[in-house]
Simulated assay, not measured.
Amino acid sequence: MADAVEAPRSTLGWIGFATGSVALVLTILIFWAGPFAPQQDVGVGLGELVADIAKSAARSVAGQPQPAALVPARDIDDYLRIGVGVLAGLSIILGVAALVRYERKRAAISGIALGGLAVGFQLFAWMMMQFVGGLVICAVIYTLRDAFGDMFGGLFGG
């Protein structure tokens, strides 16, 4: 009888599946239960945004230089998002390594898919938040059209 070549154990594939599962669950947890760091009230944040826009416009009209950019401090939410990205990337790498080692395809492809879903969910949520944030900023600038009239150069038809 011919000797059958036995596929290696699916160690890397199952580790990739586990890390991909943790990354996807952590992504969903961050999205639904977060943010975990203390946040300012939305009204306070929008008020500060409007005040900063007004101060920046006044400095620009007066010909004064703008202040230097501030580096924001990292909080627990930033570290959680970085951790999810690392886990998802590790899951994809482990799945590909399992395929290269000719391990069972189901575990390897599951690890790649779960890692990709974690990254995809995080990017989709980030993209939607950026889109909505841009709409809010456009609405604030449009609201300021009467206060700054000619400063925006007829941008709003006034």
Results as ranks from 00 to 15, higher is better:
61 V>N: 03
101 R>D: 07
106 R>G: 07
70 L>Q: 11
98 A>W: 05
58 A>G: 02
71 V>W: 08
91 S>T: 10
67 P>M: 03
60 S>D: 02
102 Y>L: 09
85 G>N: 14
107 A>V: 09
96 V>E: 02
87 L>Q: 06
88 A>L: 11
85 G>L: 13
111 G>A: 06
99 L>I: 00
66 Q>D: 05
66 Q>N: 05
111 G>L: 04
56 S>C: 03
79 Y>H: 10
67 P>G: 05
103 E>A: 04
87 L>C: 06
63 G>C: 00
90 L>I: 06
94 L>I: 00
66 Q>P: 01
66 Q>L: 09
64 Q>S: 15
71 V>H: 10
110 S>D: 03
111 G>P: 00
64 Q>P: 10
108 A>Y: 07
89 G>L: 15
66 Q>C: 02
68 A>K: 12
111 G>Q: 00
68 A>I: 08
61 V>S: 07
104 R>E: 12
71 V>Q: 14
72 P>R: 08
75 D>A: 14
99 L>K: 01
62 A>N: 06
90 L>E: 00
60 S>W: 03
78 D>K: 13
94 L>F: 02
71 V>L: 15
68 A>F: 07
110 S>N: 07
95 G>R: 06
105 K>S: 11
67 P>H: 00
99 L>C: 02
59 R>E: 04
90 L>G: 02
105 K>E: 10
89 G>Y: 13
82 I>W: 14
75 D>H: 15
73 A>D: 12
57 A>Q: 13
75 D>K: 12
112 I>K: 07
100 V>H: 10
69 A>T: 05
99 L>R: 00
82 I>K: 12
68 A>H: 09
94 L>H: 02
71 V>T: 15
98 A>T: 03
104 R>D: 12
76 I>P: 04
88 A>D: 08
97 A>V: 07
67 P>D: 03
89 G>S: 13
105 K>L: 07
75 D>Q: 15
96 V>F: 10
60 S>E: 04
87 L>Y: 06
82 I>Q: 14
59 R>V: 02
83 G>V: 04
65 P>K: 10
95 G>L: 09
66 Q>S: 08
90 L>K: 01
57 A>R: 10
110 S>C: 09
56 S>N: 08
100 V>L: 14
59 R>I: 01
85 G>T: 14
84 V>G: 02
111 G>W: 02
87 L>D: 05
56 S>W: 00
103 E>G: 04
106 R>C: 02
73 A>E: 12
72 P>A: 07
93 I>T: 10
93 I>C: 04
60 S>I: 01
84 V>F: 01
57 A>L: 13
104 R>N: 10
88 A>S: 12
58 A>P: 00
108 A>K: 06
